[in-house]
Every structure is written in structure tokens, then in C-alpha cells.
């Protein structure tokens, strides 16, 4: 490990985010290298200053009281104890979908796992792309269940034309598409649904002509299937259960046999 490597890793080192081996390597280097030690000192001083300055904004009591009151006055389902007159309408729609928030909790890969291989990196990007699409409430740029609307939408936006199979008959209706960015290139993202579960399908021209079967893995609470066929790479991700996502992947693979025009 030279000084450059060390200085690049000083931040995760200082945050306690490195594995033990690298942590010790850096500790060792800092004991012997004045230049790197000086960098580390500067970083430490900044962090100490941030920690000691009164920068934290605590919630005002009035807000705390208001939220508690809102909660109490929210309409409850009249199943249990006495009912109250509904006041805070906003609470009334509570429960239900929860995709966005649930997805938000589960993203993020271990630092040590990142960049170990191109595929691992791609998995991470697929997960991040999926989470982003749910979080930003930006699942589709073109919202349509009609493949004849979605497919042409990509024309002029990509240098290839993705297959957009109609799987509504099998219980996986199309809900639209959007452009995303994966594997260092803009790619087509197709969005299907199974009940309330969004399924993202990322597809782009494969780097080689290999045909691969559907491979499946689970990452951070999501199920991922991926394969190559007819010159195209496919990555499918959802919080749908593995069984149904496998079924969906199988159907999609079946329908993606034709070479892209």
C-alpha cells in the first residue's frame, strides 16, 4: 500500500468502515509516514470540530406535541376500543403499499464486497437503480400498459430497441418504461407489476454472444434474476417473492428469443 492508497482510504479508515486487515495496514503506515499522518491529523481535527460544535438541531417541543396530538386524533379502524371522530384526514390513508419506504431500508452493499468483480458491481447498480426508481417516485418516464406505446418511446433515446413482451395474460402487466444508467451506459428499464410489487427489467446489448440460463440471487431484500439471450443482457429485480420472480424471468426469457431489430 503506497501513500496514495492510504490517503484514499483515510476516510473509511477514520469512519471505522474498513476490514480489519486494511485497517491495520493503514495504522501501520500512519505510524511510519509523516506525510500521511499529517493528512490523518487534518481529517481528525475536522471531525472533532464537527463533533464538538453545537451543530445538532433538536426538534422543537411544539412539533413533538403536535405530532403526538395528530397521532392520537387520527382515525382508527373501529375494530377495537371506542372510536373517535376522524380529524386528521391525512392519517386515514395509512397502511397499504409501503414499497417506497421498505425499499429504502434495504439498499446498500458491504464496502468490502464492492468492486471485487464487475458482476458484483453490476448487482449493486441494479439494486441501486431499482431503489432509486421507487424512492424518487419516478418509476416510469412513459406510463403505459401498451407495448406499442412503450417500445417506440425508446426510439431515438437508445442505440438499440428493447423487446417489450406483453405478459399481462400471465398476470404481469406492463406499466411503462424509462431510461436508466447501468454498466456505464444508458439502458432501457421496463416496469412490470405483480399485484403491488414493481418489477424493474433492465436490458441492453450484451458484451458477448453467450447465451446463459436464468441465474438468481438475493440482495438486500430484493430478488434478482439475470441472463443473456439473443445478444441482449437482462436484469430483473423486485421485492416480489423468489418463486414468482423466477416465473416472470422464465416467461420474459421465453419471449425475448427474437433478435433485436
Amino acid at each position: 500500500m503506497d501513500c496514495r492508497d492510504v490517503q484514499n482510504l483515510l476516510h473509511p479508515y477514520s469512519d471505522g468502515e474498513l476490514d480489519l486487515v486494511r485497517h491495520l495496514q493503514i495504522e501501520h503506515h500512519l505510524a511510519e509516514c509523516a506525510a500521511c499522518a499529517e493528512h490523518q491529523l487534518g481529517l481528525r481535527r475536522l471531525r472533532e470540530a464537527l463533533a464538538s460544535a453545537p451543530l445538532y438541531h433538536h426538534a422543537p417541543d411544539a412539533l413533538r406535541a403536535r405530532l403526538a396530538a395528530d397521532l392520537r386524533s387520527a382515525p382508527a379502524t373501529p375494530s377495537r376500543r371506542g372510536r373517535r371522530r376522524p380529524r386528521a384526514l391525512l392519517w386515514a390513508t395509512a397502511a397499504g403499499i409501503g414499497l417506497v419506504a421498505a425499499a429504502a431500508v434495504t439498499t446498500g452493499a458491504l464496502l468490502s464486497r464492492a468492486s471485487t468483480s464487475a458482476e458484483t458491481k453490476l448487482v449493486e447498480q441494479v439494486v441501486a437503480g431499482h431503489v432509486r426508481s421507487l424512492q424518487a417516485d419516478h418509476l416510469t418516464d412513459v406510463a403505459s400498459s401498451d407495448r406499442h406505446t412503450v417500445k417506440p418511446w425508446f426510439r431515438g433515446k437508445l442505440d438499440y430497441s428493447p423487446q417489450v413482451p406483453d405478459l399481462a395474460g400471465e398476470g404481469y402487466p406492463l406499466s411503462g418504461g424509462r431510461l436508466d444508467y447501468l454498466a456505464d451506459r444508458p439502458v432501457a428499464a421496463l416496469v412490470y407489476h405483480r399485484r403491488l410489487h414493481a418489477i424493474n427489467v433492465f436490458t441492453w446489448p450484451a458484451p458477448d454472444a453467450d447465451e446463459t440460463p436464468v441465474r438468481a440471487l438475493a440482495r438486500q431484500g430484493f430478488h434478482v434474476c439475470y441472463w443473456q439471450r439473443a445478444g441482449m443482457a437482462y436484469w430483473v429485480i423486485s421485492d416480489l417473492n423468489a418463486q414468482e420472480l423466477d416465473e416472470f424471468a422464465g416467461l420474459l426469457r421465453q419471449h425475448s428469443a427474437a433478435p433485436p431489430p
Partner: peptide
């Protein structure tokens, strides 16, 4: 914050336990 708590209540069924702070902060950030 108030808006975030409303949204969080709406999505609460999707909260499967675990890190409530991270979950809430994602909603607040949005």
C-alpha cells in the same frame, strides 16, 4: 417533518421492523 410522518404512516405497512431511524430518515429526506 410533519409531512414525512404522514407519509411514513401511509407506508408503515411496508416497514418490516428493523432500523426505524434509517427508514424514517429516508422518508424525511425525500
Amino acid at each position: 417533518v410533519q409531512e414525512a410522518y404522514f407519509r411514513a404512516a401511509k407506508f408503515f405497512a411496508g416497514f418490516r421492523g428493523g432500523d426505524g431511524r434509517t427508514w424514517l430518515l429516508a422518508v424525511v429526506r425525500r
